[in-house]
Design a protein around this nucleic acid. Structure first.
Lengths: 323, 323
DNA sequence: TTGTACGCGTTATCAT
DNA sequence: ATGATAACGCGTACAA
């Protein structure tokens, strides 16, 4: 493997001059520059990036920690990160943690070990404090709201409130909600929005937890059918869950939204094909913002960037479907 | 940043001994080992991976080249790669190329520059020969069939044939197909399967090209409606396209499968929620195989690994729906 | 404008 | 069992 020393010898210049040519530095005579370039051609030289990384102390790589890569929600954030990273000449490493804490530690360690210049945390199960201990090694940006950390987030409280108020404006008073992991930051905010907005009509038995997948949605539907007192509308935390509920209920002969109004969350392809009423989230934008914070110096101020959501009208809970 | 020299000084041993302790090598006395470990604790030492990479000449990182990260199809392959990589203590870098050739060159260059130990190419637009020139720098594994390269693939010819024969067994004789990028390896195989299987009934105007997204599917549906001679069944190259066709046609008052039978491809979430008849592909398995080939020595023999597909019955083209 | 010499942090070779 | 010391390949003060 030929290196810059070989080039220097071949071109009859010093390694410094070679390095200058390689990095487009000024102050190098044209004849020498050409001599170096000729040597590069002749010897088929290719720069070793690892050596650059060691020498400069930077890898130009950002790490991304997320539970799963194959969920539309996360993939869309990745999309934003990918676009931005490419534009900036950065790479990104992805770690899939499945919310396993030991795996999350692996990711944090990678930051400490200088494998990456910074970290974007899409979702996590370790405590924020524990994660922030690694901030001494480089920028850590969350895609969730955390007041004492750099975070790019959607306001799950107001987003959920938006859905709930829409249902109320359709004269629903018996409203249920679906949550994902019950103790996650997002779920807590959503539950709070539920209690504040629906207030007196809020009922614990209408809060369906651990609802994350299509399959989980079907479970929720079955639970709903078995209840003596049923909500007339359900706001979910993902389009997948909404889809599961709707499919199962239709299967059983119920009509949506007449028997049960359902609102999704995400604005994914599922919402398009099922024509779901849903809370659309610009995930790609979140990824872009998170990335640009991670590679700038602004992260040190722990900036808070809220990304707005929009309620997208469909046929599973719309004015058109209500008398 | 403390390094192994600091540790050596602190523990009163040589850097070699420190390195041995760090890498669990034998031949190091217990007292020295403990002294080193104490020094590690005291100085808060963390190993610099970049230096390890330079010294060993390996990065323990695999690069993944794909057009988009936010398509279920690619995300599922990534999932397989992610699982395998984690198990093996490897990292993976993802490059999203959008099928832009200059971007693809960037990825190949990264292999030459030793940023990654190997490359998995999910899909590409550069010629295989051009890509294979970079094989001198490390393993390159394709997730498409290429006879002279390491490849993990599904047989698009037989997979498409499977769908076509299913339609024929439902007594369809007027069959159309949707293809993605018209000149891709996959599309060519699919077109061949169409011509061979449907043979005399194959019609150029029933081959709908550039059909990749839900939106494209809607276009296909409109094209179909405008035709004087319409196929009675369409086999698509993705569930997205199938979904787009079905939604648009239902919108216009057509019935599926009575007016048009539709078969999807992928076996994605869309197929689940729309109850599509589809050709299911185990993408995660493809990712796993590709990865394990990339990190073993077997790639040098250019192994060919075919992954089987299965026809999944739904309601958009099933025996149940035909008299 | 150019070059020398050292640093980056680790592993590997070869003595002892 | 342990330790000097030379790689690995590049960037960069500092000197000239």
């Amino acid at each position: 493997m030929t290196n810059i020393r070989d080039l220097a010898r071949e071109a009859h210049v010093s390694v410094t001059t070679v390095s200058r040519v390689l990095n487009d530095h000024p102050y190098v005579a044209d004849d020498k520059r050409q001599a170096v370039q000729a040597a590069i051609q002749k010897l088929g030289y290719i720069r070793n990036q690892t050596a650059v990384h060691l020498s400069t102390g930077q890898t130009h790589t950002i790490g991304v920690m997320l539970p799963f890569v194959d969920h539309p929600y996360h993939a869309a954030i990745l999309q934003g990160i990918a676009r931005c990273a490419f534009e900036e000449g950065y790479r990104f490493l992805t770690w899939q943690t499945n919310y396993v804490e030991s795996h999350e530690h692996t990711v944090l360690k990678a930051l400490a070990q200088r494998e990456v210049d910074g970290l974007i945390i899409v979702s996590h199960s370790l405590s924020v404090d524990e994660i922030l201990q690694y901030e001494q090694y480089g920028p850590i940006v969350f895609c969730e709201y955390h007041p004492h950390a750099s975070s790019v987030y959607i306001n799950h409280y107001t987003a959920f409130q938006k859905g709930l108020k829409a249902l109320q404006s359709l004269h629903h008073t018996e409203i249920g909600i679906c949550l994902g992991r019950p103790d996650s930051t997002n779920s807590l905010a959503r539950k709070q929005a539920y209690q504040d907005t629906v207030s007196d009509d809020a009922r614990p038995e209408w809060i369906y937890e651990q609802a994350l997948t299509i399959e989980d949605g079907a479970h929720v539907a079955r639970a709903w059918m078995n209840q003596s007192q049923r909500p007339t509308a359900i706001l979910t935390a993902s389009d997948h869950v909404a889809a599961g509920i709707i499919l199962e209920l239709r299967e059983q002969g119920y009509r949506i939204p007449e028997d049960l109004a359902v609102i999704g969350f995400d604005g994914s392809d599922l919402a398009v094909v099922l024509n779901l009423t849903t809370v659309a989230v610009p995930y790609e934008t979140i990824g872009r913002h998170a990335f640009s914070i991670a590679i700038s110096d602004s992260w040190q101020q722990h900036p808070q960037t809220e990304i707005p959501t929009t309620l997208k009208n469909g046929t599973t809970a719309s004015i058109l479907c209500v008398k």
